[in-house]
Design a protein around this nucleic acid. Structure first.
Lengths: 188, 188
DNA sequence: AATTATATGTATCGAGTCGATACTATAATT
DNA sequence: AATTATAGTATCGACTCGATACATATAATT
């Protein structure tokens, strides 16, 4: 019977976060979903910065995502780069202006207040609890995990201590290792 | 630095929940926000079942809420009752058809899977973590708590063991005691 | 090599969300 | 009695969102 209670908490916090986000970004003429798309692009790796990946992450259709991205492009928060090897694919790069907006708006002001008020211990508890809930959600429903290399079954560490992805067969630069990936698959 | 991590988890779970909800309720021709409004009305007490209260709970404007409620009324999921003592006020009663929909759609299917997979202990941990986060969010930002009588400073228990609200100066029937209230104020 | 199927992304339509504004009706205050 | 405040509705424009149709590029099949 905790299920209902957890659902109610999630729904309530969701609403508060959404309202908070909306209030903050209205000055930039953005919508919550647009900020989320931009946020995703700032924390994903170079294999995951495409409209397709944004679509998967946000759980929308590609048409809807296309519109969202057009707004962000028009506002100079991101630029589109055609993929060299596969010309169907577009890469989305967040501009420095886009990063400024994100720095300013994420996390949202009221959320920061809420978290900073919690003790270190409680913050860790909350982080772990959400991690468990999200992991279970992904695993039991067989969804895309969007995790980082560290927890991915394709992740390898070579003798000379550099990181290598067994899926794309490329070595992974240091800066990319903590970014989320649309190809991520949890270790069994 | 946990703040960012917690925010990212919340955002991700939000998206999954929203997508889940959308997929489930499309068969009833509903939108996520409409289901949330109906859900709220099924867990609030008789002082909190008005368009104004829904507006506060969902963090929208009254105009938007008015539209949402019109859809739910047209679909026979709720009925409007004018308040006897204050004729500006409308009470919103969820119909048995509305309750059926809620029973069917809340919590959403994938969320149920996710929660049931967690151990009893973990479920309790998650519940407590979310409780702490939500409480902090409300307290630090001075928002409406929408809590139950038990944790309210107006709550009293009389000698003959019946419950009494010090704000509305009325005794509270058993069934109402576990419902959320827009007048709720935490005990200091 | 030509054909077919699949994948990525865009364009457009209609229904709905949402905030803003203007409005009505009732209640509370002065 | 006049003024102000509150609850709610109506309407507008910008945006979300799914659905559909479309364009193009790649992959698979023949």
């Amino acid at each position: 019977m905790e299920t209902h209670q957890i659902y109610n908490y999630m729904e309530r916090i969701n609403n508060l976060l959404r309202t908070d986000s909306r209030q903050k970004i209205v000055e930039y003429g953005l919508q919550p979903i647009q900020l989320e798309a931009l946020h995703y692009l700032s924390i994903c790796n170079k294999y995951s910065d495409t409209p397709k990946a944004v679509t998967e992450y946000l759980g929308q259709t590609k048409g809807t995502t296309s519109q969202t991205l057009n707004v962000l492009e028009k506002k100079k928060y991101l630029i589109k780069q055609s993929d060299e090897s596969d010309k169907r694919v577009t890469h989305l790069k967040v501009t420095s202006l886009g990063l400024e907006i994100l720095e300013e708006c994420i996390p949202t002001p009221k959320f920061i207040n809420a978290c900073e008020q919690l003790s270190e211990n409680t913050q860790t508890e909350v982080t772990e609890a959400l991690n468990k809930l999200l992991s279970s959600f992904i695993k039991t429903n067989d969804l895309q995990s969007f995790g980082v290399c560290h927890s991915c079954r394709f992740h390898q560490v070579n003798k000379d201590n550099d990181y290598f992805c067994g899926l794309v067969k490329e070595s992974i630069p240091m800066g990319e290792i903590t970014k989320i990936c649309r190809e991520h698959e949890a270790i069994s």
